[in-house]
Computed example of a mutant assay.
Amino acid sequence: MFSRSLLMLAGAGTLALTLAGCSAEPADTHPDQPVTKRREIFKSFTRSFEPIGQVARDRKPYQAAEFLAQAQALQKLADQPWALFPADSNYPPTRALSAVWDKPAEFAQASADYRQKVDALVAAAQGSDLDRIKAAVSQVEGSCRSCHDAFRKP
């Protein structure tokens, strides 16, 4: 005889599996999973950049060592996702536009611009001029935005 709590637990598990199976997003079936890998790196960008952006918008107090560490973490990630856009990786679940592959020189320039802006952010973070730091944060944000506008589906 099953206890009531065990039956409820089994029902919840079945519901979770059913909902997971109804996911609208297709799985990354490529053997190397470049879409999944680059998405994880971009999520890491966000995790590193969020505290930086909060400081720049005066939503979090500026602590020089912590800020510099976050900027350096972002810098370590900055080179990583671009090699994960091989020609055979334009398939669902990507959110990349075909412009990534149709305009490779422009995409390469956008990624180079991003890396340069991140390097400038790290350089600014090594100093103590908060106005310069905030301007560098704004430059990184602008670089992200322009790349998304040109190369990413909404």
Rank of each mutant, 00 (worst) to 15 (best):
S3K: 06
R4W: 09
R4S: 15
M8W: 08
L9S: 15
A10T: 12
G11S: 08
G11C: 12
G13K: 12
T14I: 12
L15W: 05
L17T: 09
G21C: 15
A27E: 14
D28L: 03
T36C: 15
R38P: 02
R47H: 05
R47N: 07
S48K: 07
S48V: 02
F49C: 00
F49R: 01
E50G: 13
E50F: 03
P51K: 00
P51T: 01
I52K: 00
I52E: 00
G53S: 01
D58L: 05
R59G: 02
Y62A: 03
F67W: 03
A71F: 03
A73L: 04
P81A: 02
P81I: 00
A83K: 15
D88L: 06
D88V: 05
N90G: 14
N90W: 14
P92D: 05
P93F: 03
T94E: 05
L97W: 04
W101K: 12
K103W: 13
A105L: 11
F107A: 14
A112G: 09
A112Y: 10
A112M: 06
R115G: 09
R115T: 11
Q116A: 14
V122P: 01
A123C: 09
A125M: 05
S128F: 07
S128Y: 04
D129N: 09
R132A: 12
A135V: 07
A136F: 04
S138Q: 10
E141G: 13
G142W: 09
C144L: 09
C144M: 06
S146F: 14
C147Q: 06
R152W: 07
K153H: 08
K153S: 10
P154Y: 13
P154H: 15
P154K: 15
